[in-house]
C-alpha cells in the first residue's frame, strides 16, 4: 500500500514555543486515520505544515508523494481541507463560498453538491455573518465532500454539529472510504474516531506517542473483568498482568493487561464461573491514559 502522508521527525517552533518536537505520522492510502491529542498538542500545526502554510524547521513531510511546501498548488488540487474554525466572508452567501472553493480546487460535482446541501440541511442563500458555528462548518464540509479529491484533511470538523448532523458526516466519511479516498481526521469525539478510523495516531507535546490500529492499541491497555464464581478464587494474585484485584467472597473484580487475559480466564474457570462481564478498553481509557500522563509531566 502506498502512503498518502509520511511525516518524520518534524520540528516547528514559534518563538520559544516548540509546537512540533519530532513528530512522526504515516497515513496509508485509502484509510481513515484518526489524529488525536489534547489541545495544543500540535495537531493543527501538523495539518498546516501538510497544507504548505507553515514551513517546518526540520524533518521531512510528503503528501501524496510530493513536497507540501514546494508543490503546494499541485498537491492542493487533490486535497480538500476543512478547518476547525470556519470563518466566512460576511457578505457572501454560503452557496457562493461552496462554489468558490470548488472552482479554486478544480471544479465540483453539482449533483453531489445539491445532495449534500439536502443531507446537511444547509440553506445556501444565507450570508456568511448570519450562519451559526455549526452551519459555517457545514459550508466547508459540503464544499469538501462535493469535490473529487484523493485526500481529505479534516480538522475537528464536527465540533459544532448536532448529533444528527454528526451522523450525516459519518456516512459521508464512510462513502468516501468506500470510494478509496484517504481521510485524515483530527477529532476529540472518541466515539466518532472509534467508529470511523482504521488507524489512529495519538500525539502529545508535538510528538507521536502511539500509532496503530485500534486493535493494536487495545493490546497496550487493560481489560476490566467482573466475575461471580462457584468457589473461592485461587492464585489470581500471582498471575502476571493482573492489577487492582478486589475479592469479596466469591465475587472478583480485576484489571488485566489485554495480552494476559487468557491466563486469567483459565484460572477463573477452574473455580467455576457463574457470571462474567469483561469490558474491552475503550479509546477513551486509552486517551485518558495519555492525556493524564500529559498532565503529570506538565506538573
Amino acid at each position: 500500500m502506498t502512503k498518502a502522508i509520511t511525516v518524520s521527525g518534524l520540528h516547528k517552533s514559534f518563538g520559544r514555543t516548540h509546537a512540533l518536537d519530532g513528530l512522526d505520522l504515516e497515513v496509508e492510502s485509502g484509510e481513515v486515520h484518526g489524529f488525536l491529542g489534547p489541545n495544543g498538542a500540535g495537531k493543527s500545526t501538523t495539518i498546516r505544515v501538510l497544507l504548505g502554510l507553515l514551513r517546518p524547521d526540520s524533518g521531512a513531510a510528503r503528501i501524496l508523494g510530493r513536497d507540501p511546501w514546494a508543490d503546494a498548488v499541485e498537491v492542493h488540487r487533490r486535497i480538500a481541507y476543512v478547518p476547525g474554525d470556519v470563518t466566512l466572508w460576511r457578505n457572501l452567501s454560503g452557496g457562493e463560498v461552496i462554489d468558490l472553493y470548488g472552482r479554486l480546487r478544480g471544479g465540483l460535482d453539482p449533483t453531489r453538491r445539491a445532495e449534500l446541501l439536502d443531507r446537511f440541511e444547509l440553506d445556501p442563500t444565507k450570508k456568511g455573518r448570519t450562519y451559526s458555528k455549526g452551519n459555517r462548518q457545514k459550508v466547508a464540509l459540503v464544499a469538501a465532500f462535493a469535490s473529487d479529491v484523493d485526500l481529505f484533511i479534516l480538522d475537528e470538523p464536527t465540533s459544532g454539529l448536532d448529533p444528527l448532523m454528526e451522523e450525516v458526516f459519518r456516512r459521508c466519511v464512510e462513502e468516501e472510504r468506500a470510494r478509496g479516498r484517504t481521510i485524515l481526521l483530527s477529532s476529540h469525539i472518541l466515539s466518532e474516531v472509534e467508529e470511523l478510523c482504521d488507524r489512529v495516531s495519538i500525539i502529545r507535546n508535538g510528538r507521536t506517542v502511539e500509532t496503530g490500529s485500534l486493535a493494536d492499541l487495545r493490546h497496550l491497555t487493560r481489560t476490566s473483568v467482573t466475575a461471580e464464581l462457584a468457589g473461592a478464587p485461587d492464585g489470581l494474585a500471582r498471575l502476571p498482568g493482573v492489577h487492582d484485584l478486589d475479592i469479596q467472597g466469591n465475587r472478583v473484580r480485576l484489571q488485566v493487561d489485554t495480552d494476559k487475559l487468557d491466563a486469567v480466564l483459565r484460572s477463573l474457570t477452574t473455580s467455576g464461573v457463574r457470571s462474567l462481564t469483561s469490558t474491552p478498553p475503550t479509546l477513551e481509557e486509552l486517551f485518558l491514559r495519555h492525556y493524564q500522563g500529559d498532565e503529570v509531566t506538565a506538573r
Partner: peptide, 16 residues
C-alpha cells in the same frame, strides 16, 4: 439582511 444567491459565479481569487 437579504438572502444571497444559492450558487455563486466567483471562480478565482481575482474575482473574490
Amino acid at each position: 439582511t437579504r438572502p444571497g444567491p444559492a450558487s455563486g459565479r466567483l471562480g478565482s481569487t481575482g474575482a473574490l
